[in-house]
Amino acid sequence: MKKPILTALLLLAAAAVFAQSEYNFQRRSLFEKLPVTSKDIVFLGNSITDGGEWNELLANPRVKNRGISGDRSSWMLDRLDPIVGGQPRKLFLLIGTNDLAAGTPAAEVVANVRKIVERFQSESPRTKLYVQSVFPVNDSFKKYAAKHGRHDADIVAVNKGLQALCAEKGIVYIDLWTLLADKNGKLRADLTNDGLHLMGEGYIVWRDAVLPYVK
């Protein structure tokens, strides 16, 4: 019985690694070579963060983008060393939408964010932490509707959990969901062209929301 169980575990591990794209590992390996310092402001997230030209949007050369397309909270936990070790001045975290698309329960996403927060508070206590809400999605755009379009309630649940976590830990929760959602709780159609990612105007809305905390 042990051999089939071991084989199954190895297959699951291999599947988890395979799920992380070549791009994910390319970006991780690059970030390991690029130092973060105590003067830096880090944006940490998935493709939505990855897509932002943050030092230009915020007119601040100390802002560093550590977003990786497709990232999940559990994978992010495995790439924190270069960031935590750099003791950045501020960290803006956004993660969760890919977890939900992969079937990860909302409570597990919040638990992983808790681990990220607690690691920074333990090992980089001077870093000011800002946890951003998971964005709404819009399943009227078909490209990502099958994977991402069925999780509106889960997104709300994650955000409630993140807000409670931030209150517990004494850190800032930034509610971007409200700014980006239409009256039906979907990502505003004027801010996206695929239902998941932002067009330029969406990044301006986001920029304006975080700018007071960056200064």
Rank of each mutant, 00 (worst) to 15 (best):
E118T: 03
G185E: 06
S140L: 07
N184H: 09
S122N: 15
G103N: 09
N98R: 05
T97R: 00
P105A: 15
K143Q: 12
F135K: 08
K128L: 07
G195Q: 00
R119H: 05
L162E: 10
D194M: 11
V117E: 14
I171V: 14
A106Q: 04
K142C: 02
A167H: 11
K143V: 06
Q87M: 12
S140R: 10
Y144V: 03
D190C: 02
V158N: 00
V110L: 05
R150S: 10
G149T: 04
Q163D: 11
L198T: 06
E108H: 08
T127Y: 05
F141P: 02
V109T: 15
L198W: 06
A102F: 09
R114T: 14
G170R: 10
R150M: 04
L187Q: 03
E108A: 15
D190W: 05
L187C: 08
S133Q: 11
I155V: 14
K183G: 05
G161E: 04
A101V: 06
K183N: 13
A157R: 09
W177N: 09
A153V: 08
L129Y: 08
L165W: 11
V134H: 06
F92C: 11
A146G: 05
A111N: 05
V158D: 04
H197I: 11
L198F: 14
E123T: 07
L165V: 04
V172F: 03
K183I: 04
L198R: 04
G185A: 15
S133R: 08
Q87E: 12
Y144H: 14
W177G: 01
Y173D: 14
F120E: 02
S133L: 09
R114Y: 01
T104N: 01
I174R: 03
A189W: 07
L187V: 11
Y173R: 07
D175G: 12
L165G: 04
K160V: 09
K169G: 01
E123P: 06
F135P: 08
D152T: 14
E108R: 12
K128T: 10
L93Y: 03
T192D: 12
K186M: 11
L179C: 11
W177Y: 15
T178F: 03
L198D: 01
D194F: 14
K142W: 13
I95H: 00
N138P: 11
T104C: 02
V137P: 00
Q121I: 09
V117L: 15
V137L: 03
K147M: 07
A153M: 02
D190S: 08
K186C: 06
W177E: 13
Y130M: 05
G170Q: 11
V134E: 06
R126N: 12
C166D: 04
A107S: 15
P105Y: 11
I171C: 13
G185W: 10
K147Q: 08
L179Y: 01
P105H: 06
R150T: 15
L176M: 10
L191H: 02
K143D: 08
L162F: 05
L91D: 03
S122V: 07
Y173V: 03
A157M: 01
K128F: 00
A106T: 01
V110M: 04
L179N: 08
L196E: 04
G96P: 11
V110I: 12
L187K: 05
V117N: 05
A167S: 09
K143M: 10
V134G: 07
A106I: 05
P88T: 06
I174W: 08
A102V: 05
V113D: 00
